[in-house]
Simulated scan of single mutants.
Amino acid sequence: MWDLLLWVVLACGTALLVAVPLTGLDNEARWPLELGGIWVDARPAPIAHQGGYDTGTALVRRGCIGDPVREVQALLLQCGYSVPDVDGFFGLHLESLVEDFQADHGLLADGVVGPATWERLRYC
């Protein structure tokens, strides 16, 4: 049998029913859940990383400078890559790190930070 933690959250004038599985028979939480004939997948959404410099998805590549590059550098740091400095300059070393990140995450390893790479960087 499932042990569920249910509560109602009042946010912005709207009540939401939140279901959180405590454990299954083998102490593993299982998703999705069936609640009253309705299948619910109430897992929390992943939290996006933010470097605090830029929130856009502009194309960033070698030779670029500024806050979008700082954002790439900060996100790579948060994802566990060894960025020596968050200086806002996209040089050969950063291009190599971006290619490594892309290869590690199943992306085309071209060293260019486009929409797919931004998405993976923010949710690595």
Rank of each mutant, 00 (worst) to 15 (best):
C79V: 11
G88H: 11
C79F: 10
C12Y: 07
G37R: 02
A103F: 11
L92S: 15
G66I: 01
G106C: 06
D87A: 08
E34M: 10
W39T: 08
M1Q: 04
R122P: 09
L94N: 03
A11P: 07
W2M: 06
L17G: 00
D3K: 05
G80D: 01
V9H: 11
A11M: 09
T57W: 07
L4Q: 05
G51D: 11
V9F: 05
N27H: 02
E95K: 14
L33T: 00
G13Q: 06
D3F: 11
D26M: 06
G37H: 02
D100V: 13
Q78V: 04
D104K: 01
R43T: 09
Q102G: 06
A19E: 01
D41Q: 05
V9A: 14
I47L: 15
A42V: 01
H105T: 06
F90L: 09
R43Q: 13
G106I: 05
G88L: 14
D110R: 06
L75S: 00
S82N: 12
I65T: 14
C124D: 09
L10P: 00
L33K: 01
A58I: 04
Q50D: 13
L77D: 00
G88T: 12
G111V: 08
I38R: 13
Y53P: 09
L5G: 05
R30A: 14
L6R: 14
V112A: 12
C12A: 10
G114I: 03
F101E: 02
T57Y: 10
R122H: 13
A11G: 12
L92T: 15
R122S: 14
G56K: 04
W39F: 11
S82K: 10
F101N: 00
N27L: 04
E28F: 11
C79Q: 09
C64K: 04
G52I: 11
V60P: 01
E28Q: 14
P46G: 10
H49K: 13
Y53F: 15
L17F: 01
